[in-house]
Amino acid sequence: MVKIGNIELGDFPLLLAPMEDVSDPPFRAVCKENGADLMYTEFVSSEGLIRDAAKSVQKLDIFEYERPVGIQLFGSDVETMGACSEIASRVNPDLIDINYGCPVKNVACRGAGAALLQDIPKMVKMTEAVIKSTHLPVTVKTRLGWDENTKNVEEVAERLQDIGIKALSIHGRTRVQMYKGSADWSLIARIKDNPRITIPIFGNGDVDSPEKALEYRNRYGVDGIMIGRATIGNPWIFDEIKHYVKTGEKLGPASLEKRVDTCRRHLEFSIRWKGPVAGVFEMRRHYTNYFKGFDNFKPFRMRLVEAMTFDELDATLHEIVAHYSEVVY
């Protein structure tokens, strides 16, 4: 049984990675319904939260049906991160996660995210500040290092475990790699094999199929897998992996009806969270992903992104089922 503090996650948990503009409450809801064991919010800016910025505060929204769920924080100032840990803890998530892995320029170049891989002492101080400011378990997500010459995640794992983090998720690329090339899990395996390391180690990067999930579990010995981009338009990947790990058999491709029903559920959660106007607008970025590979889908996609109400969207989804019912995807 894999545990983070007192949170029991099963024998081989599957985690939804925190993704900006993706892993909001509606998307987390459909991932939970399709087998995700632990999910994280989009990353929350400590500077925005300390200023009470609306966008940052809204990212603290969590719901009972998605538990266990963690709030992920990022920032460059030690004291601010500590204060924000206290603020985030008040909404009662199951854990607090710190982002030391985001590679994008406007985060890393401000001294946050993966930039902390260049200053391990500051990373340690920041993590201590977050731990001291919350009663909740604290976890960390990071990368192998800043670049090929500074793959220091082994040191990071030991030092952060020593000060009290309860789990570590590692993306198998450096910051310089961004999302290019293949993720290297060999260093993640070395950390898992380190006799000093007793906390759960979760691997992240390039897992996009049940076969790869099982292969990586067996080859690298990780306690669980965190999945990001492969969940977009494909939240049922969690159940597919669980079925394959348990039985050795692949589930068939998601049916047309499943795609449409999941898309509709996503839309319903979006409207419930953001209201009938913003909820419809927020969903527009997801339709292409749900129906990727459908021949001649553009007319339907245009209708979906131009629709203004749930009823319009629901009618279009019914038409999609009728139109593609003879096609197997």
Rank of each mutant, 00 (worst) to 15 (best):
K3S: 05
K3L: 05
I7F: 03
P13T: 02
L15D: 00
E20C: 12
D21V: 05
V22E: 11
R28E: 01
R28A: 05
A29S: 13
C31D: 02
E33L: 15
E33P: 02
E33Y: 14
A36Y: 01
M39F: 10
Y40H: 07
T41L: 06
E42H: 11
V44H: 04
E47G: 01
L49Y: 03
A53P: 10
K59H: 14
F63D: 05
E66F: 04
I71S: 12
Q72H: 09
F74S: 03
V78K: 14
T80N: 14
C84R: 09
S85F: 03
A88W: 05
A88G: 08
P93C: 05
D97S: 06
N99R: 02
Y100F: 14
G101M: 01
C102F: 01
V104L: 01
G111E: 03
A112L: 07
A112Y: 11
A114M: 05
A114Y: 05
I120C: 01
I120F: 06
K125I: 07
M126P: 00
A129G: 00
K132L: 10
S133A: 09
L136E: 06
K141D: 01
R143G: 04
L144Q: 05
L144K: 06
T150I: 12
K151D: 09
N152V: 13
V156W: 06
R159A: 15
L160M: 06
L160E: 03
I163A: 00
I165A: 07
I165F: 04
I165L: 08
H171D: 04
G172L: 04
R173V: 09
Q177H: 14
K180V: 06
G181L: 08
D184I: 04
W185Y: 10
L187F: 13
A189E: 12
I191Y: 00
G205E: 00
G205K: 03
D206S: 06
E211R: 12
N218W: 07
R219V: 04
Y220A: 00
G228H: 03
R229Q: 07
A230V: 00
I232Q: 09
N234A: 11
E240P: 00
I241M: 12
V245F: 13
G252D: 14
P253C: 06
L256H: 12
H266F: 09
H266R: 03
S270G: 11
K274P: 13
K274V: 15
G275L: 11
G275V: 11
G275I: 11
A278N: 15
E282S: 15
R285W: 05
H286Q: 13
F291S: 06
G293A: 04
N296T: 12
F297S: 11
R301Y: 15
M302G: 15
D311V: 14
D311I: 10
D314V: 08
D314C: 10
T316N: 12
T316P: 08
L317Y: 12
E319P: 01
V321H: 10
V321K: 15
V327N: 13
